[in-house]
Design a binder for these strands. Structure first.
Length: 461
RNA sequence: UCCCCUGUAGCUCAGCUGGUAGAGCGGGUGGCUGUUAACCACUAGGUCGGCAGUUCGAGUCUGUCCGGGGGAGCCA
C-alpha cells in the first residue's frame, strides 16, 4: 500500500478504508491501554490523529519510542473520530518507529518556542507549525510570481550572480575573488592587481539584475528576473538580509503609468493566489502571528491604489498634525514615519508616489521636463512602507551620461548600458521588490530572518 | 555605524529596596478505556553568560568582555 499524504487523507470521508501514512510525531497522549498520537507530514498545517490500541503488535516495544519528533510509518483504517476537534482519525493496525527521537535532548517540544530560540536551530525549525506554514506560503507566493508574469507574457531571465558592474548604485557588494588573501598581488602603484584575479578584474555578487534585465527587455519586450541578490550592508534590522530573493520585471514600451498598473495588478494577483492556495496557513497567521493580516490584505485587494506625486505627498505631510522626528520639506527622502503616516493615517490604503526629486533617486530614472524630478514610483503599504520601487528609465543617452557623472559613476563601466540607448532605444520601465519583504507583509511575520530558510544576515551565517 | 533593552534548569519565564534559587512545559517513574498544549502523583535537573570589583554576604549593585533582541541609518 502506498503511503498517502495527510493533506489528502483529511479530505476523505472516513469509511474504514485502509490507510498508510508516513510522518513525524508531534504529540502523544498515553493511557493505560491505548494511546493517541498526532502525526504531521508537512503536507499541511493539520496533524492526523492516530489511535493505537495496546493490542497492536509490538505495542510495548514501540510505545516508549513514540516521542515528539520520531518518524513513523503507520497503517490502519480511517474512521470517524469519536472525539471532538477532528472529523476523522486513523485506527492503527501497524506502527513502525522509523527513526527514534530521544526526548531528553531534542530541542523542540510541544509548546511555544520563541523565534529567537528557533533561529539558533535553523535545521530543526521547519518542523514547527509556524515555519511549516511560512515555507508553504513562500512556495505558493513564489509560484504565483511566476504565474503572474508568465500569464502576462513576461520571459524569465537568469541574470548573472557574479557581476562586474561595480555597485550599480544599489548597495555594498560582496567581493568575489580567488586572489590569495594572505598575499595579495599589487600593482606598481600599490593597489590590488586585479589582472591576476580569476576574471582579470574586480568582481562581486550581484546587488540587482536590473541593468542586465533592461538589456533583455530591449530585445524580448517583457522580461522578469527572480533570483538571489546579495548586499554587504551592515544592516541589523528586522527587514534586512545579506542574501535574499528579488523580483525585477522590466518592459519595453512601458511608461511610468503602465509600470504602476503592472505593480498594482501584480500585488493583487499574488496575494489573491496565496489566500486561495493556502487558506489554513493564512488562518494560522491571522490567529497566532498577527490578527490584522487578513484584513490588511483585504484592503489591498479591495482598493484601487491611490496615485499621488511626491510633491503632493509633501504638502499632505506638511499640513499633518503629527510630530515627526524628521522635519518635512520638499527634497527630503521620505522616512519610514512619513510613509507610515501617509498609508496608515491619511489614506488608509496603498498609495503609489511618483515624480521624486532627482537628487534622492537612482541615476537611471527618467528625468521629467521640469528638470527637477524623475519618473520614479514607489508603492507604499501600511506597516512595511515601501514594498515596490520602480521607474521609467532614462532613454536619452546625453541625459543619462550626465546623471551618471553626477552619481560619480565611471562611464567606461556602463558602455554596454549606454548602447541600449544608442541602438534602437525605446521607452521602458520596471520595478523591483524584495521577495522576503512581500512574504513578511503577507504572513504578518515580524522578522525577515524568519521567512527564509537558513537566513544570512550581517554577522550571521 | 549609532542608540536602547536583555542574558536565571533543555524551553518559556518569576525572583520586591543585596541574606547563598522557584514555577510551568519538557525528561524519568507510576496511575488513568477517548485524549485534544490530556490529566494526577512522585522524581532528576542550575559554578543565576564570562571575568574583575564593592560588601560580613551579590542572581540582585559597579566596571568590562561575550551572546541575544529591538530601534535609527543604509536599503529591497
Amino acid at each position: 500500500m502506498n503511503a498517502s499524504r495527510i493533506h489528502d487523507i483529511l479530505k476523505l470521508e472516513p469509511q474504514e478504508q485502509g490507510i498508510r501514512l508516513n510522518g513525524w510525531v508531534r504529540t502523544k497522549r498515553e493511557s493505560k491501554s491505548f494511546c493517541f498520537v498526532e502525526v504531521n507530514d508537512g503536507s499541511c498545517m493539520k496533524n492526523l490523529q492516530v489511535i493505537i490500541d495496546a493490542s497492536v503488535d509490538g505495542y510495548t516495544d514501540f510505545i516508549g519510542r513514540l516521542a515528539t519528533g520520531a518518524s513513523v510509518a503507520i497503517e490502519g483504517k480511517l474512521v470517524p473520530s469519536q472525539g471532538k476537534g477532528q472529523k476523522s482519525e486513523v485506527q492503527a493496525s501497524m506502527v513502525e518507529v522509523v527513526g527514534d527521537c530521544p526526548g531528553d535532548d531534542y530541542p523542540l517540544q510541544k509548546k511555544h518556542h520563541s523565534f529567537e530560540f528557533l533561529r539558533t536551530i535553523p535545521h530543526l525549525r521547519p518542523r514547527t507549525n509556524t515555519f511549516g506554514a511560512v515555507t508553504r506560503v513562500r512556495n505558493a507566493l513564489s509560484f504565483a510570481v511566476h504565474r503572474f508574469f508568465q500569464e502576462q507574457g513576461f520571459v524569465l531571465v537568469h541574470t548573472p550572480i557574479i557581476t562586474t558592474s561595480d555597485c550599480e548604485g544599489a548597495g555594498q557588494m560582496f567581493q568575489v575573488t580567488t586572489l590569495p588573501l594572505d598575499e595579495i598581488p599589487k600593482t606598481p602603484e600599490g593597489g590590488v592587481d586585479y589582472s591576476r584575479d580569476f576574471f582579470l578584474k574586480r568582481t562581486g555578487l550581484t546587488v540587482s539584475g536590473q541593468l542586465e534585465g533592461e538589456a533583455y527587455a530591449c530585445a524580448l519586450g517583457r522580461i522578469y528576473t527572480f533570483g538571489p541578490t546579495f548586499r554587504a550592508e551592515h544592516s541589523n534590522t528586522v527587514r534586512h538580509l545579506s542574501e535574499f530573493y528579488m523580483i525585477e520585471p522590466e518592459a519595453a514600451f512601458f511608461d511610468i503609468n503602465d509600470d504602476m498598473d503592472l505593480a498594482e495588478a501584480f500585488l493583487k494577483y499574488v496575494i489573491r493566489f496565496v489566500l486561495d492556495r493556502c487558506p489554513e496557513d493564512m488562518d494560522f497567521f491571522n490567529e497566532r502571528i498577527d490578527k490584522t493580516v487578513l484584513s490588511t490584505l483585504d484592503t489591498i485587494l479591495s482598493n484601487r491604489f491611490v496615485r499621488m506625486t511626491y510633491t503632493e505627498a509633501i504638502k499632505e505631510l506638511e499640513k499633518a498634525k503629527a510630530d515627526f522626528e524628521f522635519p518635512v520639506k520638499w527634497g527630503i527622502d521620505l522616512q519610514a514615519e512619513h510613509e507610515k503616516y501617509l498609508t496608515e493615517e491619511v489614506l488608509r490604503k496603498p498609495v503609489i508616489l511618483t515624480d521624486y526629486p532627482r537628487e534622492i533617486k537612482a541615476f537611471y530614472m527618467k528625468l521629467n521636463d521640469d528638470g527637477k524630478t524623475v519618473r520614479a514610483m514607489d508603492v507604499l503599504v501600511g506597516r512595511l512602507g515601501e514594498i515596490i520601487g520602480g521607474s521609467e528609465r532614462e532613454t536619452n543617452p546625453d541625459k543619462l551620461t550626465a546623471r551618471m557623472a553626477e552619481a560619480g559613476l565611471n562611464e567606461e563601466n556602463y558602455k554596454w548600458y549606454l548602447d541600449l540607448r544608442r541602438f534602437g532605444s525605446a521607452p521602458h520601465s520596471g520595478f523591483g521588490l524584495g521577495f522576503e519583504r512581500l512574504l513578511l507583509y503577507i504572513t504578518g511575520m515580524k522578522n525577515i530572518r524568519d521567512v527564509i530558510p537558513f537566513h544570512r544576515s550581517y554577522q550571521e551565517a
